[in-house]
Design a protein around this nucleic acid. Structure first.
Lengths: 228, 228
DNA sequence: CGCCCATTTGACACCTGTCAAGCCTAGTGG
DNA sequence: CCACTAGGCTTGACAGGTGTCAAATGGGCG
């Protein structure tokens, strides 16, 4: 499917997150009204929709409300790599603020809903303090998460850790919105290695296939530690 | 050497970064006076000095001014891992703000100078907006950097990328403040693999040993791409 | 139906981790 | 000054894990 841009959906007035029932998840708690938490709420977009593109001038930050967004980076030598998979509550594009341009492309993986933060255009007009504080907390948490990556773990454990984390954040029953190849790119593994790792996990009853693409994860973290 | 704590050095009055000649590097530009950029400047500490400890209650954020600080994390299964190596300009400990406790231990690797940010104690009294903005920019940049990691690269390329990045930030002649074993922990490689990778790079004339521990890196990134 | 792509499986080379041993340097104490 | 030690560094042998290549299978969609 050819990726389509998200731009045509943006003709809305800003909404104050204070009146949004889902603000709890986005901001890790309630937000006070009229303190700068203004967003444009997007309609649900189809899988493959492009939120922004690597190299585009930074415009604003997005938050994932539902679904899943993948971040793709094309490195200097031309190889494409999946940098991260963003789930509800995750910030997207904040790195572009510092650099002036987005360092990666964001594409919806499966249907997704997003909010686009209202971002001041003028240079001195930075976002208000209350918003900055939440953004900083969230970004710091994401930085911490990304450091806690799957360094040095064998392939099976890496895949198990990825699936466990994914399941924890989406519910125990999950329908993976990305291909094995993309999981491999994200984890630094070959596609075939991911397939074999998933087979091992299924044989260990850590994963159960119900129907075709629906998985069930049962205490993968515990199994992982016990079985090493 | 037994790690000593940094606490005894903290009996200083806060300094405004606006009057500091090194603020340029810390904040990526000049900072306006009296806008909340207050720090306690630490005297240079010896290698092995502990800045804060994993599990300690969050107190404040530090910035590396000179030298090098390593972040250690002891995971749930007891294994120790080097999470990151922080160089001048890097923020340390911001993750503790969100979590309430520091998620890793920070220890000086080689002599280091640090500044401790003046941090409000009371909950509503968050840092001022100008400071928050810079912190957010820096944290976002660090997040972006950490995502650009060495995923999937072969060992030689990973070590080359690490050394190149280190050299870029410290100057072309470098004296590594950490052991091969620690580099391995940081990159997710075995100590012996790091040694062999360094030997390969030396044979390729990417690295040159001058004296005993002094290296010279010559266009490792270019070599790396060309030689794959 | 026929094509395209994701998934899966097998064979095989080689990269990397593990185990073991020895060397080198700095620091320590006699 | 020298022996001694501890820890970092290096090397070798070897097995196992992982990437690569190749091919078959299956599902979705025109």
């Amino acid at each position: 499917m050819r990726p389509t841009s998200i731009d045509h959906i943006l003709h809305r007035q800003p909404t104050d997150c204070a009146v949004c029932p889902e603000a709890q998840r986005c901001w890790d708690g309630a937000v006070p009204p009229a303190s700068g938490f203004l967003v444009k709420r997007h309609a649900e977009v189809a899988s493959g929709t492009r939120v922004f593109c690597q190299g585009d001038r930074f415009a604003s930050v997005h938050i994932v409300v539902s679904g899943c967004v993948k971040l793709l980076e094309v490195s200097a030598d031309g190889r494409e790599r999946i940098v991260d998979l963003c789930l509800p509550g995750d910030l997207i594009g904040i790195a572009g603020w510092t650099h002036g341009r987005y360092p990666y492309t964001a594409i919806a993986a499966g249907r997704a809903r997003l909010c686009q933060l209202h971002w001041p255009r003028s240079r001195p007009g930075a976002p208000p303090a209350a918003l900055l504080e939440r953004l900083l907390r969230k970004t710091a948490a994401q930085l911490d998460d990304s450091r806690r990556a799957w360094h040095g773990l064998p392939a099976v454990d890496r895949v198990a850790a990825f699936l466990t984390r994914f399941a924890e954040r989406t519910g125990s029953s999950l329908d993976l919105p990305i291909t094995r190849s993309e999981i491999g790119s994200l984890l630094g593994l070959a596609e075939e290695t991911v397939v074999r790792a998933i087979r091992v996990l299924r044989e260990r009853d850590v994963l159960r296939f119900e129907g075709k693409r629906v998985f069930h994860v049962a205490g993968a973290a515990a199994q992982c530690g016990a079985a090493r």
